[in-house]
């Protein structure tokens, strides 16, 4: 604003500035009171959970001492050292990650190949990964089993596909399924197949219907009206309009969401294992029960490895699906792997 501007105009800008300042002040006050309310609620929650009650006693030294039980120590030329050998021997002995003997790789490779072949033919692909294979299989089978119903419920739950009161039947069913966690679903399935991987697969599948179906429904809310109208104008029937006008808009996100739910389902398979339904989770539970904490730690490392592998695998496919650019060359795929591996870990 120049100095010789008319005073009326100047006053107007000053008034405007004053108003902006006032609004900003209100904004700050609102923000501060929001934080205060949040802090108050947090304190209440801690109290309710017993964290800041006078009666709660923490046995920190004992806890820390017990933690070291997870780490077997050995000495190498007088220097204390984490005994990875103990972990590895337990992993190998119990076939936690690999059904055959990995040491054959450097002692007798042909024997390893024939043994792997025998396992593949006799017990199938998942058996090759030993105990981890069961966890993976539960997650995978549950996802595949749940997918068709998730798709059906998810699509029919959308108001765009079915008019309001009708779509609520499917939405409501999915909400009801989601309200019950997988850990409880398996309890419901126990009379059917006992505490076994079979029940775990059913529990994961049921959970998938609720969660994946909901993601499917939400995704359909985002689609554009244009292609739907375009399909209508071609004289398409209602199912054709839904398939070509709506679902074709969401195929990529649907695949991505399914992979994401697969990741989560493998994690659920671990926790169902802790309930006794087989796989790595069961081993953790047993070993802790036997107070063999070092063995439990070895199993936890396997879980870590399994989850990270599944996540990396799913993340790679998803970013490949979402990328608009041309597909990577084989060379880039192989030699660029360490960089991409590091990048996905940072994410």
């Amino acid at each position: 604003m120049s100095a010789e501007a008319p005073s009326g105009e100047e006053r107007e800008t000053e008034e405007r500035l004053e108003r902006i300042r006032r609004t900003r002040l209100y904004g700050v006050l609102k923000g501060v009171s929001f934080v205060l309310i949040l802090a108050l609620l947090f304190r209440e929650a801690l109290k309710a959970a017993g964290l800041i009650q006078s009666g709660t006693e923490y046995n920190t030294p004992y806890f820390l001492r017990k933690l070291t039980d997870f780490i077997p120590l050995t000495t190498y030329q007088g220097v204390p050292f984490v005994d990875f050998g103990a972990y590895l021997s337990f992993i190998g002995e119990r076939d936690l990650l690999f059904a055959s003997d990995i040491s054959l790789l450097w002692t007798d490779p042909p024997a390893l190949i024939s043994e792997v072949g025998a396992i593949l033919i006799q017990d199938g692909f998942f058996a090759l990964f030993g105990v981890a294979g069961i966890t993976l299989a539960v997650g995978f089978a549950g996802t595949v089993l749940g997918f068709p119903l998730a798709l059906l419920f998810g699509v029919l739950g959308s108001e765009r596909v079915l008019p309001f009161p009708l779509n609520f039947v499917f939405r409501g069913t999915m909400s009801a399924i989601r309200a019950i966690p997988a850990l409880v679903w398996i309890l419901i399935y126990i009379p059917l197949a006992g505490v076994t991987p079979v029940s775990a697969v059913f529990a994961v599948a049921t959970d998938t219907i609720g969660n994946l179906g909901r993601l499917f429904t939400d995704e359909l809310e985002e689609i554009k009206e244009g292609p739907i109208e375009a399909m209508e104008t071609t004289g398409a029937s209602r199912p054709q309009t839904v398939t070509f006008g709506m679902l074709s808009q969401v195929t990529t996100p649907y695949i991505a969401w399914t992979l994401y739910i697969f990741e989560i389902n493998v994690r659920i398979a671990v926790s169902l294992g802790v309930l006794g339904a087989g796989g790595l989770g069961s081993v953790v539970k047993t070993q802790i029960g036997l107070t063999y904490f070092d063995n439990a730690m070895a199993t936890l490392l396997c879980i870590f490895l399994l989850i990270i592998s599944v996540e990396l695998f799913s993340q790679r496919i998803r970013s490949r699906l979402r990328s608009e650019t041309e597909k990577m060359s084989l060379r880039e795929l192989v030699f660029g792997f360490p960089r991409r591996f590091a990048e996905s870990l940072m994410r």
Partner: peptide, 26 residues
């Protein structure tokens, strides 16, 4: 009666050929 839209309204996920083929849906 066929309609051509300002925003194209073709299906991005499908190839040009598959899009053209949706004209036969009726």
């Amino acid at each position: 009666m066929a309609m051509i839209f300002q925003q194209h309204n073709i299906i991005g996920q499908m190839s040009a050929y598959s899009n053209a083929l949706t004209g036969t849906l009726g």
